[in-house]
Design a protein around this nucleic acid. Structure first.
Length: 579
RNA sequence: CGGGCUGUGGCGCAGCUUGGCUAGCGCACCUGCUUUGGGAGCAGGGGGUCGUGAGUUCGAAUCUCACCAGCCCGACCA
């Protein structure tokens, strides 16, 4: 490709509303442009990167025996109604009607469609199956943000496994886990597999592949010592034992005028330290009022509560709803003596006694509360949010909390969708069995943004060779020197013949402009062809990553660059894969 | 959904408080000359009607209201 023919609208200044480094560089480097909130156009350079990422994912999927499909992005409402998710997905699903008034949806995921086709699998002999596609997903995100990191329309590689039994699913899951490790190595993304909540999709085992980055949206609890890593929505920690004094025979009520918060009660004369209080939160899970109890100094993790309750939706109750349920306004709420409402309590409260909590009478609290004696806990669950510095459950080391980008997610789905869509096979005994599914996703555009987040400097992107829009740029320093131009053209031709992805910067522009654009767009290698050098039979070779420049003989540079690039196409530590 | 902020040529911004000539500046763009290894210099030039609509006024980018769009924070601590 000749740069003079390319459309690469680089910008000296990033648009003011771009915040994340990847967002700024995607715009500045001429990779992408926003059409409207959450929808980006990929410009030629960006699309080249996107395609290379897709191709790497495809390579590894194919290598593990998965088969590529291409499914419709637009779905009939029928299949979503059949799985029950037409209602569950709520506002996050784009919906429309055709001219006949039929309800349609833009696919936000493809369990239903794949399972629909899975109906044609009829024998255990045809299992397992590994199916995947790279397809657009549409999600009506409440808040698109950070360039390509959170958008409403994006390419995702989604794969689905079908197995006859749990043992098979475990094997499939492990195979994807291994493939994902390889894919992220191949993409030079430092993705860490962490334990995760399986959320609204349902299912059991679940791992996310997390790339540490300030631009991320997930908090991951990590132990630097033993390697424990889990999403805060799932993470646990060890807590110091707390010993309580014996409680009185019955809870004592006392006046707490204007005390509305844990902090105020801790400071109140006759109150209690935060870790001696029970925090009572009124939540609404799928229209049912539920009380969630955690220790006063702990935070409720809504995802944990939602997972524990197996609810599709969860929200805090309004003050009105709280008053209706318990008779008092927030600030004086408690679960003592509450009957007829589901009460879930955090494990850290188990066995605690002599605690203080709201009395369900405005401006009054109880002290001397014994959880086992005074509160009719329906279920004990892990509900609290782990905070930094708490001891690791495995080794006791202080845990860290690290902001991450979720680059991939794999999980065991179970039989829900296979069953709903009517899948079944006959086993070796001739008995009908519903296959068990797994689901495995990687966001392509998000991976691209994550690579930029982890590979850039003040001058622009530093693409790993494997995904770079071009592997090397040959820069003609001056178009007025015939010998130098001829030498550059010759290098360009030779490199193309060697199968190197090369761009010839033949623009009639100053050298500084070309250098800056090559750096901004992150091309890993630069060959500078200038009149003086060519006269002496030399060119310069510059590494984008290190900035290092060496002089190389014109006659040797093609061999040297080609060898370097060919070696770098698969990063150190990644397995070479052949189709 | 709640809170904060912003919409002025392709990009970055000023002007708005204290309404008033043809709405400015930098970058980019076009022409010419010079320059030519780190985002060139000089000269000339093109492009915006100020997010949209209504209102106030002799007069609105500027004041008022509504709407639309975009960005950031939060989505929970009883």
């Amino acid at each position: 490709m000749r740069w003079s023919n390319l459309f690469v609208p680089t910008l000296r200044d990033a648009p003011g509303d771009a915040e994340a480094p990847s967002h700024k560089l995607l715009l500045r480097g001429g990779f992408a442009r926003q059409l409207h909130s959450g929808h980006y156009s990929m410009l030629p350079l960006g699309w080249r990167v996107h395609q290379k990422i897709s191709e790497i994912i495809r390579l590894h999927m194919d290598a593990m025996g998965a088969q590529e499909f291409h499914l419709p992005a637009m779905h009939p409402a029928r299949i979503w109604k059949q799985s029950g998710r037409w209602d569950v997905m709520g506002d996050e699903m784009f919906r429309l009607q055709d001219r006949k008034g039929s309800d349609l949806a833009l696919g936000m995921t493809h369990e239903e469609v794949f399972a629909t086709h899975g109906v044609e699998i009829s024998s255990y002999k045809d299992l397992p199956q590994q199916w995947y596609q790279i397809q657009l997903k549409f999600r009506d995100e409440p808040r698109p943000k950070s360039g390509l990191l959170r958008v409403r329309e994006f390419y995702m590689k989604d794969a689905y496994s079908f197995d006859i039994d749990e043992a098979g699913l475990d094997k499939s899951f492990d195979a994807y886990h291994d493939a994902y490790v390889q894919i992220f190595k191949h993409l030079s993304l430092p993705a860490v597999p962490v334990e995760a909540s399986s959320g609204a999709m349902g299912g059991s085992g679940s791992n996310e592949f997390m790339v540490p980055s300030d631009a991320g949206e997930d908090d991951v609890v990590m132990c630097a010592d033993c390697g424990y890593a889990a999403n805060v929505e799932r993470a646990t920690s060890a807590l110091a034992e707390v010993s309580d004094d014996a409680p009185p025979a019955a809870p004592e009520i006392f006046d707490t005028p204007d005390v509305r918060t844990i902090k105020a009660l801790a400071e109140f004369d006759g109150g209690a330290a935060a870790d001696r209080q029970i925090k009572t939160m009124v939540m609404v899970a799928d229209d049912e009022v539920v009380l969630a109890l955690v220790r006063g100094d702990h935070g409720l993790n809504e995802q944990k509560l939602s997972d524990g309750l197996r609810s599709a939706t969860l929200r805090p109750a309004s003050a009105d709803e709280a008053q209706k349920a318990l008779g008092a306004l927030p600030g004086s709420l408690g679960a003592v003596g509450v009957d007829g409402i589901r009460i879930v309590a955090d494990l850290a409260l188990q066995g605690r006694t002599n605690m203080t909590t709201g009395a369900n009478i405005d401006d009054k609290h109880y002290r001397g509360v014994d959880l086992a004696r005074d509160v009719a806990v329906t279920e004990w669950l892990d509900l609290r949010t782990v905070t930094a510095g708490e001891p690791c459950v495995n080794c006791g080391t202080a845990l860290e909390i690290i902001r991450c980008i979720e680059a991939g997610h794999i999980f065991k789905l179970g039989r829900k969708y296979a069953e709903a869509m009517g899948m079944s096979v006959l086993d070796e005994n001739g008995d009908k069995r519903v296959p068990i599914m797994g689901s495995y996703g990687i966001g392509v555009g998000r991976a691209m943004a994550a690579i930029i987040e982890t590979h850039h400097d003040d001058n622009g992107v530093i693409w790993p060779v494997a995904v770079a829009p071009f592997e090397v740029s040959v820069i003609l320093v001056s178009l007025r020197d015939d010998a130098a131009v001829a030498a550059g053209e010759d290098l360009y031709t030779q490199l193309r013949q060697r199968g190197i992805d090369v761009v010839l910067d033949d623009r009639d522009a100053r050298a500084g402009v070309k250098f800056a654009d090559t750096e901004l767009t992150g091309i890993p290698w630069r060959i500078t062809v200038g009149p003086k050098g060519v006269a002496a039979g030399m060119v310069e070779l510059t590494s984008r990553a290190t900035g290092e420049t060496v002089e190389v003989a014109l006659a040797d540079v093609v061999d040297q660059v080609a060898a370097t690039i060919e070696a770098a196409r698969i990063p150190d530590g990644a397995d070479p894969i052949y189709r």
